[in-house]
């Protein structure tokens, strides 16, 4: 596929692009980030090409410090190994690296999410007779447990943002308050959810996600309508800084494999 030639006036981010750009901005330079495949991976690689060249990206295939030039289709594409600082076995990545507490941020997607950032990636409907059988846990339960904190990104709609997840695959802020800490989890849990509408941050006391920012052109009503629980709104909802030309150009070049 050839990348379209982009004229200056066409540099307007789509909703998905905005979500990836805002997610990339969340990653600080030097962060050690365990990256899920798909949009989190694209966002993390954009960050590496923008403000965070020293971000260390770790994939569950055992590639540490991977620097792919295009978004990998699978978690174990050859380019991840070719560009990595180290390639270790799958048992090692989950033990010496994740379980031992060497990961700052786990960056995940989800099929369903509740207001405490608890994740379902297993089934829609009943477990024994599912309406939709999803792929399942993968690395997420232990990433959610052991990474320093969790960033989540997914498109916001009321099939995904639900009052109660059909299956609790990975524990977020549990039942709120200090319930997660009482379970003995080492990492502090999900702190931010980046969506195509805005940004939700966990209230430090309750653990509940609160809408704190809207992307340009989106409204509080949009966010509420796309949320299956009674969404709390911050007293000071910010408007996300628009995507810069550089962010958009780099994101599109990254996706086209031309960075």
């Amino acid at each position: 596929m050839t990348a379209p030639v982009i004229a200056a006036e066409e540099l307007v981010a789509t909703d998905d692009e905005m979500m990836m750009i805002v997610a990339a901005r969340e990653l600080r330079n030097g962060v050690v980030c365990f990256v899920g495949i798909g949009m989190p991976s694209t966002a993390a690689n954009l960050a590496r090409h923008m403000h965070a060249p020293d971000a260390v990206l770790i994939y569950e295939s055992g590639t540490i410090g991977a620097k792919p030039t295009k978004p990998p289709l699978s978690i174990g594409d050859g380019e991840l190994a070719d560009t990595a600082d180290a390639v270790v076995s799958v048992p090692e990545i989950f033990t010496y690296w994740l379980q031992a507490g060497r990961i700052d941020v786990g960056f995940l997607g989800a099929a369903q999410l509740d207001k405490y950032g608890n994740i379902n990636s297993t089934v829609v409907g009943d477990y024994d007779h599912p309406k939709v059988r999803l792929p399942g846990a993968g690395g997420a339960p232990e990433i959610a447990g052991s990474a320093g904190e969790i960033f989540l990104m997914l498109r916001q709609n009321n099939r995904a943002f639900v009052e109660k997840v059909d299956f609790l695959t990975s524990v977020g802020n549990a039942e709120g308050g200090d319930s997660r800490q009482r379970m003995g989890m080492r990492g502090k849990g999900p702190s931010v959810v980046i969506t195509d509408i805005g940004v939700l941050r966990a209230d430090p006391a309750s653990g509940e996600f609160v809408l704190t920012a809207l992307h340009e052109g989106k409204t509080i009503d949009d966010a509420k309508a796309a949320t299956g629980w009674d969404l709390r709104i911050s007293d000071h909802v910010e408007i996300t800084a628009p995507a810069t030309d550089e962010e958009l150009r780099k994101l599109r070049a990254l996706k086209a494999g031309e960075l």
Partner: peptide, 22 residues
């Protein structure tokens, strides 16, 4: 589980699964 099998141990342990429906 694979490491336990390869090691000739009856089981393996980890920090995991806490709180999940698994």
């Amino acid at each position: 589980r694979y490491v336990a099998g390869a090691s000739g141990l009856p089981f393996g342990m980890l920090r995991g699964y806490v709180g999940t429906d698994l």
